[in-house]
Design a protein around this nucleic acid. Structure first.
Lengths: 259, 259
DNA sequence: TGGGATTTGTTCGTATGTATT
DNA sequence: GAATACATACGAACAAATCCC
């Protein structure tokens, strides 16, 4: 128990590497598709391939990197459908969070949350990545305040994956209204109005998601098969392709997709 | 692509080991707290420690085993609070599942589900472990039918962890009503009545959970201070205590709380 | 207290598989 | 299409920590 303070971070190098990579991924220092060779990571962080490998495995389990056998790891590139699913999942989870929190926050917790919102406001006009990180932190702090490790873990994981999808699909957005919604959520929680908190949270996340997930087809690289489909019948490829690329398909409905 | 069929299972030895361990854990062949030394696993499955280690890491990430630094891995022993959280989480997730499925099931899918329920019924009077596995499979099959890999993955993981908690806390139960509830859920899904499906699913899971976990709201750890409260004002302690403890009779097992 | 046995943590060499020219 | 270059998969061996007597 002699030197207790800085131990945790150095004690488990894997965790610290994971943290670094997670942050780099979400802040777009590492863009989706970037290859992550074990050697390079090991050298960069001063560890052997084993440690780098374990860190990659961990991130793969979390869905932030894609690990193909014998082909190495790269930053994940969530599909549009995955993104939609992740936000739906996140809504379900955070619904549970706020329903547990409503009316049960201590004054200290409320103060801490208001302080965090103040930080969000202060960071309003700085780098996009920072305000996104702070906005996400607000949600993860809420999850932590439930006191449930399992709930916290899953909310954290889903939030990070949502953050990754935002780097892919989101356009720059003013975070002003998001901050106001955070305040509304906190107010509802403080008053103990669970239903209102749930409703606002749902609206809030739907808002965040829709800022990002508006037009699926334009952004995403279709597979080679899909790109070639209009050319397959021997007609004029360019015109057919142009027509085909307008398919709206924003339907968020339920059709079961690919088997 | 010559020898294609059996490749997947053998190609990724880690996955197959994970599957075996998962099944063993949920069917109580490996009880919570059982140590899982790397050497032993490696020898048992005919692999080196590296592979065994990776399998354990995977299961640790899934919450089925507990991995303490320098102290090895053992089958997880979820606390009562974790169990409650897991079932809450599961309700949230499956709510999402049925809301997506309601009215969108193909006739083939409905037939497959009815067939599965028939299997559940057939296994009614066999080993407990089997009927539990089949009951869980019903839920995971539903998740798969959403066509969403992420949703499927999380439902699967949570269901397994719930299964582990059931091995810890559940008393033997007649699975009859559970089967009937499965039928009700399927009927509601077929009719496209999302609200009914959600309601029945919620009731169903609450039922399953309560068979295992004694009522959540009442039991919460009374601290020593609380227990002593009736005695604090100098009056007759016994009578005051008797009056104060008129909480519901949880006929059995109010002793699950050891911090 | 301490020392030996056992188990885990990590590195690194070799083999195998994939991409590229 | 073959050979080269490179990254990963796996295991043996060493180092460190823990447990037990």
């Amino acid at each position: 128990m002699s030197k207790s303070s800085g131990k945790a971070a150095e004690n488990d190098r894997i965790s610290s590497i994971c943290d670094a990579l997670r942050q780099a991924i979400i802040e777009q220092a590492l863009k989706p598709g970037t290859k992550l060779p074990e050697d390079t990571l090991g050298e960069r962080f001063g560890v052997g391939r084993t440690i780098a490998r374990q860190a990659l495995a961990q991130l793969a389990a979390e869905g932030l990197v894609d690990h193909k056998r014998n082909k190495g790891a790269e930053v994940a590139t969530p599909s549009w459908e995955e993104a939609r699913d992740l936000f739906d999942l996140r809504m379900s989870l955070e619904r549970l969070v706020v329903s547990r929190l409503a009316g049960n926050l201590t004054p200290e917790q409320i103060a801490a949350l208001r302080q965090h919102i103040a930080k969000e406001r202060a960071a309003r006009n700085t780098r996009e990545a920072i305000s996104v990180r702070l906005a996400t932190e607000f949600h993860t702090i809420l999850a932590e305040m439930t006191g449930s490790p399992v709930l916290t873990r899953y909310v954290l994981e889903i939030c990070r994956r949502c953050g990754l999808t935002l780097t892919l699909y989101a356009r720059p957005h003013s975070s002003e209204c998001a901050i106001n919604e955070h305040i509304e959520i906190l107010d509802a929680l403080e008053k103990g109005d669970a239903q209102a908190a749930i409703r606002i949270m749902h609206h809030h996340l739907e808002e965040v998601a829709s800022r990002a997930l508006i037009s699926p087809t334009v952004v995403q690289t279709p597979s080679l098969m899909d790109m070639l489909a209009p050319y397959a019948n021997g007609g004029n490829g360019a015109r057919a392709a142009e027509a085909a690329s307008k398919s709206p398909k924003t339907g968020r409905g339920a059709k079961n997709r690919k088997k």
